[in-house]
């Protein structure tokens, strides 16, 4: 604990890493809320896994671990995966879950093969590319951190500006089209925002668990509110807390990867929400149910039944 406070107070690199994982957490929570409501939770997972071959290929081409190049590689293969999922769903008889499973495993398989190839190479600074699997926020320095934090901030602001439009295409896309919104453009824009969120989080959180930072905060947030605006903020808050706590614990030097720690803290908040949230939580549901039975047996429901 003391160690955490020490590094937070004195190490400016830690401060920047914490700030940008916080922004990443907010962006994931905010965009994850829309992904959850659009029933695209698994798409985020596919994109994260599919980013790996892009990262490795970018490394092959550049020959060193340059964050911007790796992010661009990840974005390209992530978008390609998303496009393939849509193509398979619309042109074959396969359902979306099957298409996601196929694309995810094929891309991730290729990614692992390429990663093995990278680690067999003697040239270049290959150490650290393994961090992309489980994430290591502490391994990020200087410009990587600014790039991640800055991009996350842009994602948050974009979502805020387009909140009304994104809400409408999520709730009722046909109506959105009917009042003249460019549905295709907005959907592509949202997909891009989602892919970029996943991709910038890959070094800090890792390809395997990035989707969890996207979905768990929004699932937890849904328990607390029946308003999309409030849900998005709570989800962003939970994402921020998960990001920050995961990052801080992983900087302790115990050799723990950031991704799993972020997911563990997000999951804790999800379990709390599941149990104690008003109205939707388990305790509230259970007492409501009990009251209902009590009311029925004492006959106060008789009027409706008659």
């Amino acid at each position: 604990m003391e160690q955490i406070i020490q590094s937070l107070l004195h190490d400016s690199n830690t401060q920047w890493v914490v700030l940008s994982t916080m922004l990443l957490g907010i962006a994931s929570g905010v965009l994850g809320s829309f992904a959850l409501l659009r029933k695209q939770s698994l798409v985020g997972d596919a994109v994260a896994h599919a980013a790996l071959p892009g990262i490795c290929l970018a490394f092959f081409i550049i020959g060193e671990k340059q964050f911007l190049a790796l992010i661009i590689g990840a974005t390209v293969s992530g978008l390609l995966a998303m496009y393939l999922i849509q193509l398979i769903t619309s042109t074959t008889r396969l359902k979306q879950d099957a298409a996601i499973c196929l694309v995810l495993s094929v891309f991730f398989g290729i990614g692992i093969v390429l990663l093995t190839k990278v680690s067999q190479q003697s040239s270049g600074n290959k150490s650290g590319l393994d961090d992309f699997i489980f994430g290591q926020a502490a391994s990020m320095t200087g410009s990587d951190v600014y790039l991640m934090g800055g991009t996350a901030a842009v994602l948050i602001v974009t979502t805020f500006i387009l909140f009304k439009e994104l809400k409408l295409i999520t709730f009722d896309p046909e109506f959105a089209k009917g009042i003249g919104l460019p549905l295709g453009v907005l959907e592509t824009l949202f997909s891009t925002l989602l892919v970029v969120t996943v991709v910038i989080g890959i070094q800090a959180v890792g390809v395997i668990l990035m989707a969890a930072l996207l979905i768990i905060p929004s699932m937890a947030a849904r328990y607390w509110t029946d308003s999309l605006g409030v849900m998005v903020w709570i989800s962003g808050l939970i994402g921020a807390i998960s990001g920050v706590s995961g990052t801080l614990i992983s900087t302790l030097g115990l050799g723990l990867a950031t991704g799993p720690l972020i997911v563990v803290s997000a999951s804790c908040m999800f379990v709390v929400s599941l149990i104690v949230a008003p109205k939707r939580g388990m305790i509230a549901q259970w007492t409501f149910h009990k009251k209902g039975i009590a009311a029925k047996t004492t006959g106060s429901y008789r009027k409706e039944g008659a």
Partner: peptide
């Protein structure tokens, strides 16, 4: 969907 009757009605104004 997390929204209420007034909010859905407002979508008609978008």
């Amino acid at each position: 969907f997390p929204t209420n009757a007034l909010d859905v009605t407002l979508m008609g104004r978008y």
